[in-house]
């Protein structure tokens, strides 16, 4: 099973793109904070979770270079995200049914 060392290539992402993504993350944070002050009813949770998911995807793909990794790493990351999704969904069986 021992496999040869994989060739790791440097994936250059320009500083400009990093800054753009960072600004995007800040903007999303601003939107989350703003939405917290607006009464959206049940939608407040859904919108917050969607924004958080998009932010996580950006961090994982760009800053953590998951975009350039092997399929195996992507599957592992997906398992982690899927587990978290199940945890959150199950928790809502308590909170959403009053």
């Amino acid at each position: 099973m021992s496999q040869p060392e994989e060739q790791h290539t440097q994936h250059s992402i320009s500083y400009g793109r990093y800054i753009l993504i960072w600004l995007g993350l800040l903007a999303f944070t601003g939107i989350t904070v703003t939405l917290a002050g607006i009464d959206l009813g049940r939608w407040v949770i859904i919108t917050s979770l969607v924004i958080a998911s998009v932010k996580s995807l950006l961090v994982l793909n760009i800053f953590m270079h998951l975009k350039f990794e092997d399929k195996m790493f992507k599957i592992f990351a997906l398992v982690a995200v899927a587990t978290l999704t199940i945890f959150i969904t199950l928790t809502f069986f308590d909170y959403a049914f009053y």
Binding site: F93, D94, Y95, A96, F97
Partner: peptide, 22 residues
Amino acid sequence: GSLVWAHHMFTVGMSNTGMFIF
């Protein structure tokens, strides 16, 4: 086993749906 945690909490005032599922 990772999905059964709330069976520790049946008396804390969870929703009936939550209790049934867990």
